[in-house]
Amino acid sequence: MQEERAALAAFTALTDLMGNETDVLALIRQAAAVLAEAHDMDVTYSEREGEVFRIRVWPPDFPADLLAEAQAGYRPSDPGFEEAQRTRQSVFLEEIKGHPNWRPGAAVYEAVAFQPFFQGETMTGMLIMAARRQTHWSERERAVFRAVGRSLNLALERAEGVRQLARSNAELQVAVGELQAFAYSVSHDLRTLVRRIKGFNALLRNRLTDTSDLKTEHYLSVIDDAATRMNILIDAMLDLSRTTRQPLRLEEVDLAALVTSAQLELTSEDEEQNVEWRVQALPIVNGDRHLLRQVMVNLLGNALKYSRLRPHPIVEIWTEERPDEWVILVRDNGVGFDPRYASRLFGVFQRLHHE
């Protein structure tokens, strides 16, 4: 009874560990300890290295000659390995002592069980439980070995997923850094070209001061305006690059105060535009103050821009509460857009109007 309680405690500890541990060998050592505690067996784990499986985990009293053989590597065609790989299931071999196909070091064992582990179609590891005194496996022993194998397999898959995610994140950080460097390099080169365009355009305008050719003046203005817009686009590209790399700084944000601040900034830029603001009561939300303000400035700026030709521009702002979020809505009586292109509305540098 005491042995049963100890085995149950060990299995519970293994279950807890599997929910949090991502170190593969730590998981396997704990699984080996559970099996050894429950059955008084030698439990080992071998991992694939090329065309052989080399031992990675073994008990303190593991036979030296068998350890040397296991470190040299098991072959996929060795007893137990071949059947486990073919069936992808636990394999239980009994009365093996004296069998001609077994390696000399295995002569101390009477029965051996194998639990394979796979990644896709490739067998990557093998958990082995070996008995020195008993020649057969009871149904209870088989059930426990299979249960531990299934649990360990799930834990190994989760750990591999975590490792792959960590690798992907590391690669992403490298790619983001390279993209950032590229953006700064390109922006510097573009700014140089834009400055030269504006500079030579100004020189050309000075040389043509005596002319009354309105078409020439129009062409020069188009060049200057295009260069100015190019500078704005470069600034936007750099701002976007910086913003996407900054961590969110969450805090309580008063939306009413934030909208008022955005209104003041935008109306001071165009004091002649007589806008009717319809702002409903706005809540305090949890978010990044700087980013939320940028969003509001962009949304309200677009509303003003595309309603400026109306005799009586109207901009409405309100919120709707959802189970886990607040939705902020902005509506204006401007020119609107074709609903067919709604999916492009928030795409980076996308335009639904030619201006």
Rank of each mutant, 00 (worst) to 15 (best):
G287K: 05
L304V: 08
E276V: 15
V285P: 01
V295M: 03
I317F: 07
L291C: 06
V275T: 12
W318I: 02
R293S: 08
L329E: 02
V327F: 00
G287C: 01
W318C: 00
I328H: 00
L292I: 07
N302D: 09
H290C: 03
G336Y: 09
G334P: 09
N302T: 11
I317Y: 01
R310D: 13
V295T: 05
R310A: 12
L300T: 02
R322M: 10
V330R: 03
L299H: 13
E276T: 15
R322W: 10
L309I: 03
L292V: 00
V330M: 00
E272K: 12
R322A: 10
L300K: 06
R322T: 02
G336L: 10
E276I: 10
R293A: 00
G336V: 08
H290L: 14
G287F: 03
G287R: 00
V279E: 12
I284M: 10
N298D: 13
E320R: 09
N286K: 12
V315E: 05
R278W: 04
H290T: 12
N333G: 08
G287D: 05
K305Y: 03
V285A: 06
A281E: 15
V327M: 13
N333S: 13
E276L: 15
G301P: 10
N298E: 11
P283D: 06
